[in-house]
Design a protein around this nucleic acid. Structure first.
Lengths: 147, 147
DNA sequence: TATTGTTATACTCTATAACTATA
DNA sequence: TATAGTTATAGAGTATAACAATA
């Protein structure tokens, strides 16, 4: 038998769903001045870590390959990344960060870090790490791509 | 100075955004057999706790009043709630749960509780409550409606 | 004149299907 | 024939504007 819930406010899932939404919105907000969203930043980091085709990126980011087209379009328009024909397989584009893209990645990370310092202010640094680690453990088990 | 992030995977916000999305999807999944979503369940509980007009519900749930129309339509179609003209102000409808609606609320809560027992299985009960309480504290500060 | 519920409409986001070029 | 990228199109979800009934 599980714990009897009096209210959904006592439900971990609902609280996390709500907080997750808030965190994402806050992320988008502080990145807006850079011209992109939290999802863009995520993908920018993925592309920075390893040379990948658009479809590899889309699979790992959990977005459709047609959606990835628009996202990479955004990067090119902003001058943050460029499509480079893969010499080994000329059907593929490798998404490569420009110098400006690497700067934007750093700036984005810094903006996120600052926003989190403020948003998670009610917690001590230790509690904040605790929160992240607990969430991480659940996420790993849930078979989601945390890369 | 804040902690230098090497990767966004170390960012509480990104991890929470991801976990929140997974939790919500899982909730919708286990409620599907009841014919409604996690958001429906949330609103059903709100309507159950107190007699409220559609606009009060929409304000507290953070959805547009035009969206609430469709949600209450769903409840009526499923026989879970009904619109009752407010005698004091005949512009308003009070959203009232039916007996079937109260059963659905209980069934939904049970389904969520069971899903969470499974989803948060990697954590001890103590850790799970810790996770919820930490999330709750951040959420309260963030000025979000947790009702 | 303002407010509640409603409808019609538009906008955003994302996925599906079909096309092209390469393999 | 299969795959990478692309485009056009359609669907879901949500918000904005306008309307009828009531205050």
């Amino acid at each position: 038998m599980h714990t009897q819930q009096t209210s959904l406010d006592d439900s971990v899932g609902f609280v996390l769903a709500e907080l997750g939404k808030v965190a994402l919105a806050r992320g988008d907000q502080v990145l807006a001045s850079l011209g992109f969203t939290a999802r863009h930043l995520r993908i920018l980091e993925m592309a920075s870590a390893e040379q990948q085709s658009q479809q590899q990126l889309s699979a790992r980011a959990g977005v459709d390959r047609t959606t990835m087209v628009a996202l990479v379009d955004d990067f090119e328009r902003l001058g943050l990344a460029e499509r480079r024909k893969d010499a080994a397989d000329r059907r593929r584009y490798v998404v490569g960060l420009t110098a400006k893209g690497r700067e934007a990645l750093d700036a984005g990370r810094a903006a996120i870090a600052a926003a989190e310092d403020e948003m998670f202010g009610p917690l001590t640094l230790e509690e904040r790490e605790q929160l992240r680690d607990l969430a991480h453990r659940v996420l790993r088990q849930s078979g989601t791509i945390v890369c």
